[in-house]
Nucleic acid binder design. Structure first.
Lengths: 227, 227
DNA sequence: TCTGATGGCTAATGGTCAGTAGCCAAGCTC
DNA sequence: GAGCTTGGCTACTGACCATTAGCCATCAGA
């Protein structure tokens, strides 16, 4: 066994070479595995503190090999952040579409917001913390979506206030407060804890309605079942 | 003008040397100026992306000169983060001390919370975003204070719930929601905007009471004056 | 069986950065 | 005015890191 696999340029030790197509790794999954690993690491260590070598190690390859699948580290971040905002807005559109009543529309919007932040807590967490790590023009794009998203909530609250259904001093503060609660969820929620995603969504929906003065009073005596 | 100030090791160009004690810079302020510059930069660019040279430039000196005033970059971060938690807890103790009624105690706690996050928004912002950049054992210390702080709110809400004054499904979710709203404030508030700090504090105090079901109904008809 | 594409690898490149070493001027104290 | 202290400075060190260059094994298809 004298033939060294590394070729002429390599040192004379046995290189731990892995074949291009190892056992349990379907080729199409590689890219999404990398994305998932990046997400986990960005969330745990921050974008700047995560190295390409870290991401590579998480999927069983070396840092430079990642470039066979991905253009840059920045691209991984951009994908996560833009995807997050797109999904939030898409979910919101669906949520609102199902109801005419402002109260119900706000409830559903909040539930969708919470659901996303609980189910995709890492995306949401990274999406919030790493805005500054995103280069232009993507940063502006994400900030634009974010402000669109906030406007959707604000306009709902304005509408409710105009109708006399909601009672708030500032629609902007109300929308910020509601959204910020959701953002908070992404920093502490974990599956298998005290509450299910559905319970959480329902409770926050309730809380939001209280905040805008749309629940008659101490309300919320209907246990915990959602919908 | 042939005498080069840089000494024998230096190159032969005119060095822009500043005297040890320049005009308008009282010596005692140097350290706090550095701290302030670090705070600004950490908030704007993040801890990892801020270099010692950046901080130096912000106070008119070179990066390495900072080490005459500060032990390390990490020390600057630790000071900010520990100081923030200490202050929040101290403010909370004072706020609660002034009242017996749970309702009033919660209101004052929330107002203090909001006031801090508005007045010291950079500290609060950095304090939240950079926990992961803080090395041990400081990180655990800060997390410990944070959890003490949360407990203070939660116990207040538990007490109110036991008395029948508050009505919530989960005291933990209620405390998290309230605190998260404040954290949000530190990310968007700016002096000179639509609301003063006092107005903000008052409105959030109101909102928090609504959230725990302690305001009879649509409430809040008393304009905007605090206290 | 050849050949191109794919996806690994190591080595190198170019850059950045925290922190250290050592020099020096100004000012204070004795 | 000698000498110490303070707080600047430049140069350097050691490390780290994203990305590129270029090599090669495997595999699919002709």
């Amino acid at each position: 066994m004298s033939s060294v696999q590394g070729g002429s340029h390599a040192a004379s030790y046995e290189r731990p070479y892995r074949p291009a197509q190892p056992e349990g790794t379907p080729v199409a999954d590689r890219r999404s595995a990398i994305r998932q690993a990046a997400l986990l690491l960005f969330a745990a260590q921050g974008y700047r503190s995560t190295t390409m070598a870290d991401i590579g190690a998480a999927v069983g390859i070396r840092g430079p090999s990642l470039y066979k699948h991905v253009a840059s580290k920045q691209e991984l971040l951009a994908e996560i952040m833009i995807g997050t905002m797109e999904q939030l807005i898409a979910d919101n559109i669906v949520a609102v579409a199902g109801a005419d009543d402002v109260r119900e529309r706000l409830r559903r919007s909040v539930e969708a917001h919470i659901r996303y932040h609980a189910r995709h807590r890492l995306e949401a967490f990274v999406g919030n913390r790493e805005i500054g790590s995103l280069e232009q023009p993507d940063q502006d794009r994400v900030l634009g979506r974010r402000s669109d998203y906030e406007r959707r909530f604000r306009e709902l609250i304005e509408q409710g206030a105009a109708e006399g259904t909601f009672h708030v001093q500032s629609t902007r503060i109300a929308s910020y407060s509601i959204l910020d609660m959701g953002i908070g969820v992404s920093s502490w929620f974990h599956e298998g804890g005290e509450f299910s995603v559905d319970q959480l969504a329902y409770q926050y929906g309730d809380t939001a309605l209280r905040m805008v003065g749309a629940l008659p009073h101490s309300g919320t005596r209907n246990g915990d079942e959602p919908e």
